[in-house]
Design a protein around this nucleic acid. Structure first.
Lengths: 341, 341
DNA sequence: GTGAAAGCGCTAACAT
DNA sequence: ATGTTAGCGCTTTCAC
């Protein structure tokens, strides 16, 4: 095995020479299995040469010559955000499936850094940009990003010109509430947080609309706001449980608050879901799956949003803008053990 | 502004023409601010031309011509562990700082896919490979990865030939235990899990050695194993609390089990840290920061491991193998509120 | 100090 | 069906 592989310098010419064909033939054979101008036998010889020599195509050279990189760029604020990962994964899987690569750059939430990151990505000649936020909101995308097709994921364009993929917060809130209604609850509390972001507004709207549609108790006392942490959830749950007629179920607008609510409920010697059913939102696995009992919650479809982002991007880059430019993705309910049967 | 930028096709030749110099001059000026063969004025003119035309270098072309890509590849089973993305972040930040890029490919924990991912990375002509695991263990790296300098992160080579970066589990376990000893505890329980992975063995060893060194109670009854989930932690804590002479503090070998232990402790009407102090391990923020009270725990240094991996890789690729080939990274204690003052 | 020229490894007309 | 021939955008001698 004195293969040139060891040298790492086998080129397409070497393969052509070895297979006794032209470089063109090799190029054709490799890029298209059914290429009309290369016979089956020739193709076979070429493939053998490739294997013999341990040839590996040089993606950079190919990109240079063909003027297409097969890369998309993904810019996100924090690679570490527990959520961002799933967007990345969704995008990468989908891209991989299309034989494309996703180059990831993190902006660290810093404007300059972000611009530098996009610049770097463009230098790599990415064919499109995915711009992902760690939490659903309006964002201002740097101008530079407009030089290439761009899709926003889990956020939307403050200027309203860029296409985006966002979660359906309202439907999610409705679904959580309907789950509780389906379990027979009529008096359902909502622990929400005071904010004008889509998550807060949408989930609350979903809650109200579900209640209205099903004839559940529409009582302002049943809706309590505040901060969005576990501690806030605890405090909110205490208020709910102290009500003259306390709810028999609670929908928490995020899992962290549900975590706090669990504490308040348990402290009173009440059981979940025996005495009180609870539904969360976000499906932060680390919390929802490990809470005792495990938490039934609504999942944010990060992975799907990432995948849909790539889909939209390939439509855009290939010029065929088919779908709508604002894609709203459904938030599925993840059934666990915190709602009574 | 009828800049050719709009066309996205400004090349170095355009810049040269615009600045009335040769392409060589542009190349020199751009790649080295102090290049001896280009005068300050010339350089200035070139920079202006770059700005005027909106020129953006083509990284791929540069890589092709210079035979160096400035890229490292990172292969990981991204799916499983949300916290392992910190490895990516650490690596990326560090690489970015060195003006390098990290191409990420996920293997989905599937052997074939993994090999395909490495293959793809090599086609991109990455100069080195980072191979990251989501949990500390021995791994078998595909042969193909040996074609280029490779560093294992948060795992080590089953064949013992590749350099690696791993967390110091033993020192971490010792540190957690020492923290409890420092708070005056002598009777310290250990909730561990039955497994022969480094995390289980190392943390337990650290616990024992700290106790031995400080003269704490070395009692087999104080060590209880089982599974590694919150439910297992709950069960283990119950056993500990049922002991004739229960511990006054508990070291949980991971945060999830600590979560379960919290429940058991609270159920008995005991308080944390008033009656029982608790220390965890892993620093899974979603759990440790939101538990009530927040959990003092030992952190796995993912980010640092990622950064150190890149460091080692650049030493390897530049031929200067300075440091040791098995780097053990310290696990810092994250002080929160679950240990009595 | 500057520029001509020869590639880097590959693609894609355009012949043959 | 196969080969010829230009590039793609940049780096890097080497001569001027």
């Amino acid at each position: 095995m004195t293969s040139p592989r060891a040298t790492g310098k086998v080129t397409m010419s070497d393969v052509a020479r070895h297979a006794k064909v032209s470089r063109t033939a090799v190029s054709f054979a490799l890029s298209d299995p059914e290429h009309p101008s290369v016979s089956a036998e020739t193709r076979q010889r070429i493939l053998e040469a490739v294997a013999d020599l341990g040839y590996r195509p040089n993606a950079g050279a190919r990109a240079l010559a063909s003027r297409r990189s097969d890369w998309y760029g993904l810019v996100t604020e924090i690679v570490t955000a527990p959520f961002a990962v799933n967007i990345i994964k969704g995008a990468q899987d989908r891209a991989w499936h299309d034989r494309r690569f996703v180059l990831i750059a993190s902006s660290e939430g810093d404007g300059d850094m972000e611009e530098a990151a996009v610049e770097k990505l463009l230098e790599q000649r990415v064919e499109g940009l995915l711009y992902a936020a760690t939490w659903h909101r309006a964002v201002k995308v740097p101008d530079i990003a407009h030089e290439v097709p761009t899709v926003l994921v889990n956020c939307f364009d403050a200027d309203g010109v860029l296409p985006s993929i966002v979660p359906d917060e309202v439907a999610g809130g409705r679904r959580a509430t309907e789950r509780l209604l389906a379990a027979g609850h009529r008096r359902i509390g909502l622990i929400t947080f005071d904010s004008d972001i889509p998550a807060a507004i949408g989930r609350r709207d979903g809650y109200s609309s579900a209640l209205r549609a099903a004839g559940g108790d529409l009582d302002d006392d049943l809706v309590v706001g505040g901060g969005a942490t576990a501690t806030d959830g605890y405090a909110a749950a205490v208020r709910l449980l102290d009500l003259p007629v306390p709810p028999t179920a609670i929908f928490c607008a995020n899992d962290r608050m549900a975590m706090g609510a669990y504490d308040a409920i348990k402290e009173r010697g009440l059981t979940i879901p025996g005495d009180i059913s609870v539904v969360g939102f976000d499906n932060q696995e680390l919390i929802s799956a490990y809470l005792r009992p495990s938490l039934t919650t609504v999942a944010l479809p990060f992975e799907e949003m990432g995948a849909r982002g790539v889909d939209l991007l390939s439509e855009l880059t290939s010029g065929q803008v088919t779908g709508p430019l604002q894609v709203v993705v459904d938030c599925p309910l993840v059934e666990r053990s915190s709602v009574r049967p």
